[in-house]
Design a protein around this nucleic acid. Structure first.
Lengths: 276, 276
DNA sequence: CCGTATTTGTTCGTATGTATT
DNA sequence: CAATACATACGAACAAATACG
């Protein structure tokens, strides 16, 4: 009854975690201890632990032990700019301001700039021929010193004639959008496209993700348009999917105070909202 | 060298998949065949296959075999309403129209309506006391007969005095937003909050997800405000994270034609965009 | 429909390697 | 260096789902 043994063990351990019997961050019994407690073989116990790990409930560290995963409050990012206050300022500034408001400190690595050939995705987003030159500006962004997001912007190479600063590393730290506006290239609007996918090796390393594909990445494509509907830039930003939340305001909405919709937190709610 | 054997096997299989040597949907060699090919034990081969499965590259079916995962083009949903054309029409209509535009057919289950006590998340979103009565309206939404999303809207119980139709199952199929507007309750704006999390058991079953927590869910909280900044409704919609994409338009953007940013597809791009 | 072969799922026991304490 | 704890790997047996004659 009740299915395979390893699932029964997993269920029991799960219960002990979600009931609070085992606190966040605390160490689970060793595999050896669990073998004895459940009279199961090592492989079976490990299957149970792997299941919990897949669901993000525990984390296993080689040589140290298995620990109950600790909740990390998500970073909240607003994707829409307030037409009244913001006026469409540079994203870099907006992001850091928003993070600072939550009492954390946002920093960025040095900007890496360069020119490369447009791959299909970039070419399509900017409506330029595949393989034509594009300027890229890349940054690693941290919060309180911990990896937060990776961002790369692409501009058509031809823009550098009017906006040579795009190829400077530090000068336009105020935000490329602001810089371009000073040159008469207004960002009249933008389109974001959000998707969730598995991390690339680079992303896995930057974010310090587990080597199995357990943790996903949220990728945001932002295509910026000027007043003539030309595609001026493509910005790709990636985040850890499980530690970031994105907010979109449409129409007349009050200024956000508390922000967070009081998320329950873990996975254990089990449809606590009734019919949700 | 090159790490554990099961990873070497996994890498080799991965290469055969991403190189196209093994087509989408085709069956991999049986575990028995892989044992012989790599001179490894069955458990080791299974470790390798599990790794590929975790990364979403293959799917294993009990008694049948292991198959290369087939790409499913994502459903695209626009979260912002065009102030010119849409004017903030009912979401239900907008969604189905958008899906229809892509040549697919959107249908919904019967609406389940009822009254329940507000849980903390709902109470916070609507700014009402926890435990007070709320009306819920729940729907399962399908595309071409396949599960697509689950949606539940919550309204303060008190709204039913002015809008009794909220408690009818079918009558306001045009969309609750339209219905409320006909009663003078305008949705002046809304705030979406997007997060990614593991599926609940109900969601796992509805979407037909694998029982390990491999596939994630995108959850969108939408809080609607009336012209007086009152919180009129909370709509929670959940989607398969890996088969849906969300678009947000801000400011002046051209009408989307092609939509998709020509995503490369799989995970195997391996930072093909260079510095991304 | 039945029975058999095929294929993956579960469980055990055991041994050895590697990281941490 | 030794003890502890998780990681990898092998071999074996039986169970469960599926395919096929």
């Amino acid at each position: 009854m009740a299915g395979p043994l390893y699932r029964q063990i997993a269920r029991d351990l799960r219960r002990k975690i979600s009931s609070g019997e085992w606190q966040q961050g605390s160490q689970l019994p060793t595999e050896d201890a669990l073998m004895k407690r459940y009279r199961a073989s090592r492989n079976t116990v490990r299957s149970a632990l792997r299941e919990l790990s897949n669901w993000g409930l525990v984390e296993t560290l080689h040589g140290k032990g298995t620990f109950v995963t600790e909740d990390v409050p998500p970073i909240v990012t607003t994707l829409t700019t307030d037409p009244k206050t913001g006026g469409g300022g540079g994203e870099g500034r907006v992001y850091t301001a928003e993070v600072a408001a939550s009492g954390r400190e946002a920093t960025t690595s040095d900007t890496v700039v360069g020119v490369q050939k447009a791959n299909p995705a970039v070419a399509d987003a900017l409506r330029i021929p595949e393989g034509s030159d594009v300027i890229f500006r890349h940054q690693e962004r941290l919060i309180d010193g911990r990896p937060w997001s990776l961002q790369t912007s692409f501009y058509p190479r031809s823009l550098a004639d009017r906006a040579p600063g795009l190829l400077d590393t530090g000068d336009i730290s105020d935000g490329a959008v602001t810089y371009l506006r000073s040159l008469g290239i207004e960002q009249a609007g933008y389109r974001d496209s959000i998707e969730v996918r598995k991390p690339s090796p680079t992303e896995t390393e930057f974010f310090g993700l587990p080597s199995d594909g357990r943790v996903e990445i949220t990728e945001i494509y932002r295509v910026g348009f000027d007043q003539y509907h030309n595609r001026v830039r493509l910005t790709i930003t990636v985040y850890r999917a499980d530690r970031n939340r994105f907010v979109i305001n449409v129409g007349k909405v009050p200024i956000s105070e508390g922000l967070l919709p009081a998320s329950g937190g873990g996975n254990e709610q089990d449809d606590s909202s009734g019919t949700v």
